[in-house]
Amino acid sequence: MGAIEKDLASKDSLSTLVRYENVTKRFGDIEVLKGVDLDIKPGEKVALIGPSGSGKTTIIRMLMTLEKPTSGVISMGGEPLWHKKSSSGKLVPADEKHLRRMRSDIGMVFQHFNLFPHMSILRNVTEAPIHVLGLSKEEARERAVDMLEKVGLGDKLDAYPEQLSGGQKQRVAIARAVVMRPKVMLFDEVTSALDPELVGEVLEVIKDLAKETDMAMILVTHEMDFARDVADRIVFLHDGQIEEQGTPQEVLENPSSERLQAFLSRFLRN
């Protein structure tokens, strides 16, 4: 009996990479998330959609440890992210050391790129592998060049961020995050700050990446076609709660909730 339970537990931790359990987030008087439960499997690609203010961005920012949940538990590979088990087995708030260890499995691409403007493109991508992962300069350079070529910027190694277009900057930002080989990659509305003609090149890079990698991805996006192409599962958020989720076909073609139907029709009209 005990053995079976143990087996089930380990199976459970194998099949779930990221788990949100009744997670809430409050900024002052505003309750942004009102109890979210969400499981992400290793390698799974999940798109978060929903109107602005529905809390999609907050969900991934909490996983990147940029915001602290007000209540609830987020775990990563079976281990609580914001909490630590004390010697008595109780959950206590995590210290920076714990957060830093947990963060090594998580990567993020931001809406506004946030490249380091004082570093060349190559250094933007090699800096963390050298100083955080402890790779040698040669190894880091090799990995970075490889990654930058993959996103089509192998000829911009010595350029500076300000010399690149928005689409190019975002592709560098993707390379910079992926080169760390996280288990889950977070994409926060990565095309929202781009000129319309530059959106395609960035989405292509992510699509290719999604096809060939076994990293899990959580993508906050307003691009429905992109979500359909990339995601294994689409999660619709409304007013701080998960309203509906399922495969792209289920969610986009056969939405059951009225709110999702209204949301999608607004998108199709635009």
Binding site: M64, L66, R103, G107, N114, V132, A177
Partner: peptide, 20 residues
């Protein structure tokens, strides 16, 4: 955003200060 990027790249506090 620079602080957040440094965190996402998992830099230590010192590295964030002196490199970013």
């Amino acid at each position: 955003g620079q602080w957040e990027a440094a965190k996402a790249m998992n830099f230590s506090k010192m590295q964030t200060w002196f490199k970013v």
